[in-house]
Write a protein that binds this DNA or RNA. Structure first.
Length: 625
RNA sequence: GCCCCCGUAGUUUAGUUUGGAUAGAACGUCGGUUUCCUAAACCGAAUAUCGCAGGUUCGAAUCCUGUCGGGGGCACCA
């Protein structure tokens, strides 16, 4: 049963556009927020354009327009101020209509129209621990998939796992030839392998280049398969992937399907794709010149050429990516087998591709209209090639490269890692050089700090599981830090700065949520009585919150249609800030009866709204903190 | 050489899609608020030639042209 979508602001603006006799979309272009709530709630900036068109003074056009929309329901009055048409909401009516409707479903819009979408993210190579750069990828991907679900898409979340082995070659050299033990007691295996073995082996290569012969030998053995080295590799990869899963569980990131690269090879995705690409004429065999003997894709956009199959007949990486993308978009005439990987304690099932027979009754994972591929900006070139091939093969398909800038380390942080630092603003991370920050370590430090403060605050409460809260809040804090800014800007990670838990952090939301909840808890739960909205006088703090509620459905629409989380995080920040101001300035439980009933409803609605925002941003709310 | 991204207070940044009123925050600095629903909160002060130069416009951080600075990408690597 689909509930009717509640979008009161949308209805008000539609009525305005009707009265003006102007197309709705056109009207929206002229709607702005006012610089100051004293001036009005929203502004209609249409008089300037009309004045030009009709050759009349701006003030006359503004007055005439204001007349037309006077008396619209939910609008109290209209002020014309030097050409700006400022509209004041009728907060009594709006409160009466809206407050009880702001629940956990409020803001869900149906722009997705149940369309199936694949969001792919994380995709960490199993040769090291998960660092904060990977966490940005996962945090963005997970929040985008939550957002798209909220906006009415049918979302499948996949994690591509490169288990083919070559990236672990250096670690195998370390363990099999250079005497490193397989594991180190008390150290998580992905940390040990990435922080010690991988870094040390690469340092040794530099000192003694002759050691590189071991690497070649390992790579050869891996390619041949069915030997000691290759089975050791599989075992090592499995252990590291399990360790990765632990870290992603801490971040509360979930997947619907794990896609293994080795299975893409085993199910011959590329071979299938190759014959289809040839048949469609999308790639051509070069008969002469430098690229003689290669199969090449020529871009229709800029005329550039990309080799897909080498002259020796082997496929380049992008080729496998194309085959895989064809599978996602339902164009590949073959499929994986699937089986259940695990059931999440918090609900939901994680599936995995498999070489076994698998189960027939699996959900449909591919054949989507849109795929969102969360991959950092450095791979734009390859991603654009894949996009162009897919969109030529299947007109209307949307292959989206969800590109983002990487996480880099501040100079202080680099020095804290024992490196010399630089004179630059930041340093890019490097697994090889050991310049990176692991997610588990950040979460440990954050959790401890949050825990000790929570213990301080709750001395009288021995019944609360504060460690559980601290772990969850630590994950929320890291996630929010990584997604709250423009994804196209480099995230500068500073170890000191990350420990700040005030203001623009996840803790701000958690604290706000707990405060709001506390009001309700202490209200004696008698906020069921209905206030008399007609007599209501709302103050500026109450108005701000109600206005946020009016704005929310549009925030979701804008955020989801542009895949822009900053729109949502800015809104959420404002909402929390508005609530905190309200909290400081307005008594709820002590106010007189009618007012109290209204304010309790306002608090309840604000709490629901905040909760909806937090869920998408990846911040689990707690009633007490 | 070609292509992409970024440039807004000391720092981190919002606003650029769709030009509109005094460029909005936060950290840091200075000052204030706890007999009151959780002070990781709230309130106030100071701090910005919106990289630079032209142009379009009644109006430009936003659009156009040029230019400078920073980062990344341009493999028969994965």
């Amino acid at each position: 049963m689909v509930k009717a979508q509640i979008d009161l602001k949308d209805s008000i603006l539609k009525e305005i556009s009707k009265r003006l006799g102007i197309d709705y979309k056109e009207t929206l272009k002229y709607i702005r927020d006012t610089p100051d709530p004293v001036m009005g709630d929203i502004a209609l900036e249409i008089a300037f354009a009309l004045a030009k068109k009709n050759q009349r003074p701006v003030s006359e056009e503004a007055e005439a327009t204001a007349k037309k929309i006077e008396g619209t329901e939910y609008i109290e009055k209209i002020n014309v101020d030097s050409g700006h048409i400022n509209i004041f909401y009728d907060y009594r009516n709006i409160s009466g209509y809206l407050l009880d409707k702001v629940d956990g479903e409020y803001g869900r819009v149906s722009i997705g129209k149940k369309e199936r979408v694949i969001v792919e993210h994380t995709s960490v190579n199993p040769n090291k621990a998960i660092h904060i750069g990977h966490a940005k990828n996962a945090a963005l991907g997970d929040s985008i998939s939550r957002l798209l679900k909220f906006a009415g898409y049918d979302v499948i979340v996949t994690n591509y796992i490169d288990d083919t082995g070559s990236q672990v070659a250096d670690n195998i050299v370390g363990i099999k030839f250079l005497g490193f033990p397989m594991e180190k007691p008390g150290v998580k295996i992905d940390h040990y392998i990435g922080d010690e073995v991988y870094v040390e082996v690469n340092r040794m290569y530099e000192e003694k280049p002759e050691l590189l012969k071991h690497r070649e030998e390992v790579l050869k053995m891996l390619e041949k398969g069915n030997n000691d080295i290759s089975s050791f590799s599989s075992m090592l990869i499995k252990k590291i992937l399990d360790a990765h899963a632990e870290t992603m569980d801490r971040l509360r990131v979930k997947y619907d399907l794990l896609n293994y690269e080795s299975h893409i090879l085993a199910f011959k995705f590329w071979e299938t794709a190759f014959s289809q690409l040839k048949k469609e004429g999308l790639i051509k065999l070069e008969e002469s010149g430098e690229k003689k003997g290669c199969w090449v894709f020529r871009s229709k956009i800029d005329g550039s050429e990309k080799i897909i199959v080498r002259s020796n007949g082997t496929v380049v990486y992008v080729g496998k990516d194309i085959a895989y993308a064809m599978w996602k978009h339902g164009m590949l005439k073959t499929d994986f087998n699937y089986k259940v990987a695990r059931h999440y304690a918090s609900g939901g099932t994680e599936w995995t591709t498999t070489l076994e027979d698998g189960v027939q009754a699996h959900p449909k994972f591919n054949d989507v209209g849109m795929s969102v591929n969360v991959v950092d900006v450095r791979q734009s070139y390859e991603q654009n090639v894949v996009k162009e091939v897919i969109e030529q093969l299947k007109p209307g398909a949307r292959y989206m490269h969800y590109s983002y800038e990487v996480v880099a380390l501040s100079d202080n942080t680099v020095k804290a890692l024992g490196e010399s630092g630089s004179n630059r603003r930041f340093t890019h991370m490097s697994g090889r050089k050991g310049i990176y920050v692991n997610v588990d370590d950040v979460l440990d430090v954050l959790s401890d700090k949050i825990y000790s403060s929570a213990v301080e605050r709750n001395k009288d409460r021995k019944d609360m599981d504060l460690r559980k809260f601290a772990d969850s809040a630590a994950a929320s804090t890291l996630r929010y830090e990584l997604i709250r800014s423009d994804k196209n800007k480099i995230t500068l990670f500073d170890i000191e700065g990350s420990l700040n838990l005030e203001n623009r952090t996840a803790m701000y939301f958690l604290y706000t949520y707990a405060r709001a909840n506390s009001i309700l808890a202490k209200s004696g739960l008698d906020h069921a009585s209905t206030p008399d909205y007609r007599k209501l006088e709302t103050n500026q703090y109450e108005k701000s919150l109600i206005k946020d509620m009016l704005d929310f459905p549009d925030v979701i629409k804008r955020s989801a249609s542009s895949l822009d989380l900053v729109v949502l995080s800015n809104f959420s920040q404002k909402l929390a800030s508005d609530f905190n101001s309200f909290y400081e300035h307005v008594e709820v439980n002590r106010s007189e009866d009618g007012l109290r009933a209204f304010r309790l409803r306002l608090v309840k609605a604000s709490l629901n709204l905040l909760s909806n925002c937090m869920q998408i941003l990846g911040i689990d709310p707690f009633e007490r903190i």
